[in-house]
């Protein structure tokens, strides 16, 4: 375990609203650290629809989702936020001094005076394929990512999917596994053509098997898989040996461990007040798509408004008693100094 990372504000989620929170908090001299489960900033904008235009960002008649993320990154740059990617927050603990200790799924420890949940639709997690009974094998025979290649040594491996993850692991695990069967519902792939060509070449040499179809059934006992049924290919239903399975069915969004933080919830959303956007726990705020209040609209622009008000309240938590002078970026020399511009 590395040392404790301290910051004024820990922001969970680096989507557009989490990013703009850095700006508003930064104007009030609060230093931010963002954690995101993705490997990049931007949240849904970057992951789901980077090239799609957004038409309801004030001042931008049309801007691509990735374009908006890029502009936000440029806007918050003066405040030098820190980012930790590929991590999910797991536990939260209240400290005696009023702050919070947050631990990630990789056991990094953060301490912050304020926690801002800007987690959008929740954390992106691998989607469970619609195979009856698959839950019983998860974590023992069915995995959604590869942590150690050795876990697959000498196993009959079935990989399901047609994207880069599926193809890359087919190629990388082939030398380790006892057998590899790649299953995809059609002969066209989303993966890089080069990987697809390599896969077909290995199939020619009988080093692996590619089958068109869908996995519809599993057999096994006590969490240990034995075989998988593949349906829909030209050969009809077939059963293949399978002691390890790697399904790559894309991502879905789930609230995840935040649900266990002791906050009041409203249908998987976090209720907040509309003055501070604070949750039921003082010092923990929720902004953007993850929060709920009467009249809530899940719009990026609503999130932007929410972070401006939240920042004022967060400042009062971090620096109690300090007078906050309301200022405009257009005219305030002190704000302009923070932004690194001169008026």
């Amino acid at each position: 375990m590395t040392g404790i990372i301290s910051t004024d504000v820990l922001i969970v989620g680096a989507g557009p609203v989490g990013l703009f929170a850095v700006f508003e908090l930064g104007l009030l001299d609060l230093k931010c650290h963002l954690i995101d489960i993705l490997d990049k900033p931007g949240g849904q904008c970057a992951e789901l629809y980077p090239e799609k235009p957004i038409y309801d960002i004030p001042g931008w008649p049309s801007i691509s989702a990735q374009g908006l993320v890029d502009k936000l990154l440029e806007q918050v740059e003066p405040f030098k936020p820190d980012f930790t990617y590929n991590r999910m927050v797991s536990s939260l603990e209240k400290l005696d001094d009023g702050g919070f200790r947050v631990t990630t799924d990789e056991n990094e420890v953060f301490e912050a005076k304020v926690v801002v949940i800007a987690a959008g639709g929740g954390s992106f997690q691998p989607k469970r394929p619609p195979i009856p009974g698959i839950e019983a094998y998860e974590g023992t025979s069915v995995f959604y990512s590869v942590r150690r290649m050795e876990d697959f040594r000498d196993h009959d491996l079935v990989i399901v999917g047609g994207g880069d993850s599926a193809l890359d692991w087919t190629l990388n695990l082939q030398p380790v596994a006892k057998s590899v069967t790649l299953v995809h519902r059609r002969p066209e792939f989303r993966a890089a053509p080069d990987s697809v060509n390599k896969m077909y070449a290995m199939q020619e040499m009988k080093q692996l098997e590619f089958r068109v179809g869908q996995v519809t059934g599993l057999t096994g006992a006590d969490g240990q898989l034995a075989s998988a049924t593949i349906k829909g290919g030209p050969d009809g239903d077939i059963e293949v040996p399978c002691t390890r399975m790697l399904p790559f069915f894309g991502l879905t969004m789930k609230l995840g461990p935040i649900a266990e933080w002791g906050l009041n919830l409203h249908e998987n959303l976090i209720p907040v007040d509309t003055e501070k956007f604070q949750t039921s726990v003082p010092g923990i705020f929720a902004v953007g798509d993850i929060n709920w209040y009467p009249g809530k609209l899940k719009l990026i622009l609503s999130g932007f408004h929410e972070v401006a008000l939240m920042a004022q309240a967060a400042k009062r938590v971090v620096s109690p008693g300090e007078r906050i002078v309301f200022q405009y970026t257009t005219s305030s020399t002190s704000l302009q100094k923070k932004l690194g511009v001169s008026g």
Partner: peptide, 11 residues
């Protein structure tokens, strides 16, 4: 759309 259908149920 075909690419996205890969993620759907009982295609």
């Amino acid at each position: 759309e075909e690419d996205m259908l890969d993620f759907a149920y009982e295609v």
